[in-house]
Design a binder for these strands. Structure first.
Lengths: 127, 127
DNA sequence: TAATTACCTTCAAGTCTTCGCAGGTATGCA
DNA sequence: TGCATACCTGCGAAGACTTGAAGGTAATTA
């Protein structure tokens, strides 16, 4: 009987692991197949040391798997679902961003009206 | 043209906001309707000050909305989608936990066999 | 008016994360 | 054997997050 509190702790631990720009990009890059550290380093333009540290963390939480071949370490997603789920998050974010831009425009329009001194306008009593 | 890097930064910022046990539980509680601070404090058994601080953060990122009525502040989810999305994450976690328990049981069984010295058993060569 | 309730904000301490660097290991090649 | 490549690990500084305490505000009640 995993209590809600326990589940929330575990989920937050998982989210914390994912919640880093570099690590999100690593997961995205690995969605299309395994890559080695240097390749990821190039694609993200992030020092290989840092990539390696991120990968160690992702691996510790079993989000990626390591396969060694000679001196190369190939990393791949341990669970493809997670990448899909992440992508849903991106979609959510993009729709929010779109509405942000609309809201920004509305504010801009309102300011424009205000500057022009159109106080006879009935819709000017917000805040 | 939001670059991948920018999107990854924004998504990680959003995930960081969500990635806290208390805040995950707050989002879960609000899924069924608006609640005031003291009600959340009771349900999570977390000091009201802390709940208030979490809510302020969630509100700043527009994950929740505030409606004031007398001295009560009712909070509700600003975007229902996000709760659904979170729930997908929980499901993912639960399936992973289930397989963990299975793996754990397999290890336990193996240890049991090992203790009993049943080395003639063909299925005893996992790690 | 004074007290109470419900909530908010600021602050300081403790903790956790991130990052580059220096120094390691393991593999391959000459 | 020596050297280069590909990667890893430990360390410490800088910064971010979490938390309770103290001291607010605003609305209700006596």
């Amino acid at each position: 009987m995993p209590s809600r509190a326990v589940l929330a702790r575990e989920l937050s631990a998982l989210l914390k692991v994912i919640a880093h720009p570099d690590r999100i990009r690593i997961i995205e890059e690995l969605k299309t197949g395994a890559l080695e550290v240097s390749a990821l380093s190039d694609r993200l333009t992030v020092p290989a040391t840092r990539v390696s540290q991120h990968l160690a963390l992702l691996k510790a939480h079993r989000l990626v798997e390591e396969r060694r071949e000679g001196r190369f370490h190939h990393y791949s997603l341990a669970e493809a679902d997670i990448a899909e789920w992440l992508l849903d998050g991106v979609r959510f974010l993009e729709s929010r961003r779109a509405s942000d831009i609309a809201a920004q425009k509305a504010i801009g329009d309102a300011k424009q009206l205000w500057r022009n001194g159109v106080e006879s306008n009935g819709a000017a009593n917000n805040q």
